[in-house]
Amino acid sequence: MALSKEQIAQRIAKEVKNGYYVNLGIGIPTLVANFVRKDIEVDFQSENGVLGMGPFPFEGEEDPDLINAGKQTITTLPGASFFDSAMSFSMIRGQHVDLTILGAMEVSQNGDIANWKIPGKMVKGMGGAMDLVASAENIIVAMMHTNRVGDSKLLKKCSLPLTGVNCVKKIVSNLAVLEIVNNSFKLLERAPGVSIDEIKNATEGNLIIEGDIPEIQF
């Protein structure tokens, strides 16, 4: 069975370590916060100027002066701080944020990512994604392995306008966990019940398969 969006988030949450400052993108990455182990200390950064983001507010307690980068109302946790946009990107560009998790429309085997524009169709802008991918040491991408008509989104070369080059380290898709190494996607884990052949068929870029590939554990 391919993973659900929640399961992708749950698997990515295992990559979040004690003491990490983490920036979560919009979509599946936002769900990761729900699955992080409760016994570790992690601070979530939102690039509009919040460190120490908490859960959504209770009904009636929402504050228009307190939102995340997806413009959703949020809360803060004890120890949180607010800051301006330039300082926020000092945290990001200056590599003070340990882990960046974001979505993608396409990733290529050399670690390029495209996630901000479909020419002629969707032109919303890159927001902070280009700053994040250009600077982050550790970038994990949450994505669907194929598009709606079954074409691979893990490619030799991206076809959409790029967000950044040579930057993605790891991918958690609905089918597999993969690492970018030697200009290839190295298969690390597969979704429970998903065969190697299914992953091969869904991956256009070079795929490295070494030894037994374990199933994803949650």
């Binding site: 959504f56 929402e62 228009p64 002066d65 939102i67 959703q72 109302t73």
Partner: peptide, 12 residues
């Protein structure tokens, strides 16, 4: 007016 763009809340 301070309009909220994406109202997201959790239930008590």
């Amino acid at each position: 007016e301070k309009r909220i763009e994406q109202l997201t809340v959790r239930k008590r």
